[in-house]
């Protein structure tokens, strides 16, 4: 499918349980995410999607099991000085005391990435990629929600990461901006060969960009489906997953009704 795609498994999740306190929100998660894959974590509200992502990025510890990146745990990667992941937080999480440009150059400064003189130019290029050329000197507070998300994506791309995590990238965006963001993610994957892990509720994103998805069931506290969205929509074992994935047609029919 993609020139750069190889069969290396970059992320291995092995019998992982995640949660806060003593009680696991999800357990028994096992999956291999391949290189250059766009992998979606899907599930109902409160099913532990973001918690799983936090465990993958090292913000919290998994309660049990292992999460490996090319055979190394997140902690090992951090202590080895391996390049960090790109992460787009749900709120954007731009550093509010800095301009948009400083937000993108900051990770490069902190981790001494590339030549100091080249950093501003690199940051401008990343900002142009997400369509924010000309907004470099603005403060995050003066940006719209969609622009903030895109600036945060530029920051996530600052260190040319091998893995990009997106936490509900289209939350709070209008449908058009959300589709543009999807397109961008897909282009980035195709162009740079990065692996993308995204948490999403958006069926539109799921169908248009995700190669595979895992569905976390919030009531059963375990994953109930793994596969490509189109295939799961037809033949998932869980009726909940089939129903979830079948909502798309109905939703657009309803929207069409409203527009009419």
């Amino acid at each position: 499918m993609h020139a750069r795609r190889t069969l290396n498994s970059v992320i291995t999740i092995d019998e992982v349980s995640v949660g806060y306190g003593m009680r696991p929100v999800q357990s028994g998660i096992s999956v291999r995410i391949e290189k250059s894959e766009i992998f979606a974590i899907v599930g109902d509200s409160g099913s532990g999607k973001s918690t799983l992502m936090k465990a993958m990025t090292g913000l919290i510890k998994a309660q049990s099991g292992r999460i490996l990146f090319d055979g190394k745990t997140v902690e090992e990667r951090m202590t080895n000085g391996a390049p960090p992941f790109g992460i787009l937080f749900q709120s954007g999480a731009l550093w509010s005391s800095m301009t948009v440009l400083e937000n993108v150059t900051m990770p490069m400064d902190l981790l001494d990435y590339s030549a100091p003189a080249a950093r501003a130019a690199l940051a401008r290029f990343k900002l142009a990629l997400v369509g924010l050329a000309g907004d470099e000197d603005r403060c995050p507070a003066s940006l719209s929600g969609g622009m903030r998300k895109r600036a945060a994506l530029a920051r996530a791309l600052a260190l040319d990461p091998a893995v990009l995590f997106l936490d509900e990238p289209s939350a709070g965006l209008d449908p058009l901006s959300a589709r543009r963001l999807d397109e961008l993610v897909k282009t980035l994957r195709d162009g740079l060969g990065i692996t993308v892990v995204l948490v999403t509720h958006e069926l539109e994103s799921l169908y248009s960009i995700a190669d595979r998805m895992i569905f976390l069931d919030g009531e059963a506290h375990r994953p109930v489906a793994l596969g490509s969205p189109a295939q799961l929509a037809k033949s998932a074992d869980s009726s909940k997953v089939r129903e979830f994935l079948a909502r798309r047609g109905r939703m657009s029919a309803e929207q069409a009704e409203v527009i009419r």
Binding site: M78, P84, S91, A93, L94, W95, S96, L110, L111, R155
Partner: peptide
């Protein structure tokens, strides 16, 4: 406030 806006998380995940 930075904590609430995930700005601290953004630093942590950079290894800083």
């Amino acid at each position: 406030t930075m904590q609430g806006n995930e700005e601290v998380d953004a630093l942590t995940t950079l290894g800083v």
